[in-house]
């Protein structure tokens, strides 16, 4: 059955094809327009979330700073000012003329004793603020000392394993050593204070490009779901420090089964 196609049929086909293409082009244009809008919206949302996260970190940093100031103020007031008062009072007594020899000796020995205490306290405060060993001997030595200082016989054992010693942290900017130190310090404090742990293990595992610190304790641990809701100041502090390191901090815990944390950067 061979029919010669008539002009009408041709025109019809061309019109339909034309309409199909024009509508398709229109649909594509609309598609791109709305897609762009959707993608931009999503990007904006992500940026907002990032900003929010940064605000939270900043807040945590400021809060920590305020707390630290309070602590220093308290230390200065309790341990330094009050003792300096005692010294000042005693020094005034010394200056009176009719002081018996016996009293004179007692007062001066008292002054010496208290001065010693003030010196010791001011050194301790300075040490707490910035451990001199960190600056003088490096992070490995500081961590070693930190673990040693927190160990007390059989009651509390803090083990520190770092086969490459100071070399392990060689690649890391020395500015960041303090952050690492503080993170470990905070973890130990938490384990002792909240976890009631009696055994803490810290293991440093480094390669050329990566450094990992594994931290475990045998304390009471915590409920992950519960702690997510109320991220304590200590944990926020650790997270903001990890962010400064451009590293990753993960912590896992099961109630009554201790804590397992990993810092990698």
């Amino acid at each position: 059955m061979q029919i010669i196609p008539n002009a009408e049929q041709f025109v019809e086909v061309i019109i339909y094809t034309f309409i199909a293409f024009v509508l398709m082009a229109l649909a594509l244009l609309l598609f791109f327009y709305f897609s762009r809008k959707k993608i931009l919206k999503k990007e904006l949302e992500n940026k907002d979330m990032e900003l929010q996260h940064q605000m939270e970190l900043l807040e945590a940093t400021l809060e920590t700073q305020e707390r630290e100031r309070q602590r220093i103020a308290r230390d200065l007031h309790d341990d330094i000012s009050s003792k300096l008062n005692v010294i000042s009072l005693n020094a005034h007594l010394l200056s009176s003329n009719d002081l018996p020899e016996k009293d004179f000796e007692e007062i001066s020995s008292n002054i010496i004793l208290v001065t010693k205490q003030v010196l010791e306290n001011s050194r301790r405060i300075a040490h707490d603020l910035l451990p001199p060993i960190l600056e003088n001997f490096g992070l490995h030595a500081a961590l070693e000392e930190l673990c040693h200082a927190n160990s007390s016989g059989e009651l509390m054992k803090v083990s520190y394993i770092n086969p490459r010693e100071e070399l392990a942290f060689g690649k890391i900017d020395s500015k960041n050593h303090l952050h690492i130190f503080r993170i470990v310090q905070e973890l130990i404090n938490n384990s002792i204070k909240h976890g009631k742990a009696s055994l803490i293990n810290i293991e440093v595992d480094t390669t050329e490009s990566k450094c990992q610190i594994h931290y475990t304790d045998n304390g009471v641990g915590f409920d992950m779901k519960e702690s997510k809701k109320k991220n304590g100041i200590g944990m926020k502090n650790i997270k903001s420090r990890a962010a400064f390191l451009r590293g990753k901090f993960e912590i896992k815990s099961i109630l009554n089964q201790g804590v397992n944390a990993k810092l990698s950067f």
């Binding site: 086909v13 339909y16 199909a20 398709m24 649909a27 598609f31 897609s35 959707k38 993608i39 999503k42």
Partner: peptide
């Protein structure tokens, strides 16, 4: 039937685009 071909296919193409839009991101 040209109209039939056009309308039945074009609507499906539009739905496919809807889905492409939905799975962005």
């Amino acid at each position: 039937n040209l109209f039939e071909i056009f309308i039945t296919s074009f609507l499906i193409v539009i739905y496919a685009m809807f889905h492409f839009y939905n799975i962005l991101n």
